[in-house]
């Protein structure tokens, strides 16, 4: 077992452990932290495949932006764990039977010889080839159309999010200095003529 394979198995073990903890952790904050670990470890796996740029993007975008946001949301939400776990034991036997059945079925399909991963080598890459450059060039040449489409999908998401949540500007009560200076006594005080009432 050479060094690369050792690193691969090391990272994979951590990845599987982190993935399991994401779904088993009682505390949602712990789950999110393990998800961060999972992402970071898979970034390491991508590095082994010499996809440096993608690995960096995974770390920066997912861990740096998405997961931090996620963490904020999870910390702010007051999730009642007991309520979520109600009925867990009641449903466990049925769920387990169904899960095992699905696993067996998948095993029967996937275990057949057709789904074996071919023993293929990662295509060799020249030592000075730049991942970022290649990806950038592809995105702006052959894949420019889907790239633009993805941008439009993001635009749709923004428009939709704003349309669904924005409820018009808040009417703040602020005073306009110019209007205050121009004001005359007659605007402020209204003199009302009333007949004098008799005192009891």
């Amino acid at each position: 077992m050479d060094f690369k394979t050792t690193v691969f198995f090391f990272l994979s073990a951590i990845l599987i452990f982190a993935g399991l903890r994401v779904i088993t952790a009682r505390n949602p904050v712990h789950a999110v932290l393990h998800l961060i670990l999972a992402f970071f470890t898979s970034a390491g796996l991508w590095l082994l495949l010499q996809a440096e740029f993608l690995a960096m993007v995974l770390v920066m975008v997912y861990i740096g932006a998405v997961m931090v946001l996620f963490l904020f949301v999870v910390m702010m939400l007051d999730i009642n764990l007991d309520q979520l776990r109600q009925g867990f034991w009641k449903y466990l036997p049925l769920g387990a039977v169904i899960g095992i059945l699905i696993a067996i079925e998948m095993g029967m399909v996937l275990g057949s010889r057709y789904f074996q991963v071919l023993d293929s080598e990662v295509p060799g890459v020249a030592a000075n080839a730049s991942n970022t450059r290649e990806l950038g060039a592809l995105l702006s040449t052959d894949y420019v159309y889907p790239f633009e489409l993805a941008a439009v999908v993001l635009l749709v998401a923004i428009v939709a999010a704003v349309a669904l949540t924005f409820r018009g500007p808040k009417k703040t009560r602020y005073t306009d200095p110019a209007a205050q200076i121009r004001v005359k006594a007659a605007d402020r005080v209204r003199v009302v003529k009333m007949p004098v009432e008799k005192q009891d």
């Binding site: 894949y143 159309y145 889907p146 489409l149 993805a150 439009v152 999908v153 749709v156 998401a157 428009v159 939709a160 349309a163 669904l164």
Partner: peptide, 18 residues
């Protein structure tokens, strides 16, 4: 292309959900 087909589908569906 599978990619453009999928992106078109998502563009339409996202707008419709909203």
């Amino acid at each position: 292309h599978f990619l453009t087909l999928y992106l078109g589908l998502e563009m339409m569906s996202l707008s419709l959900y909203a």
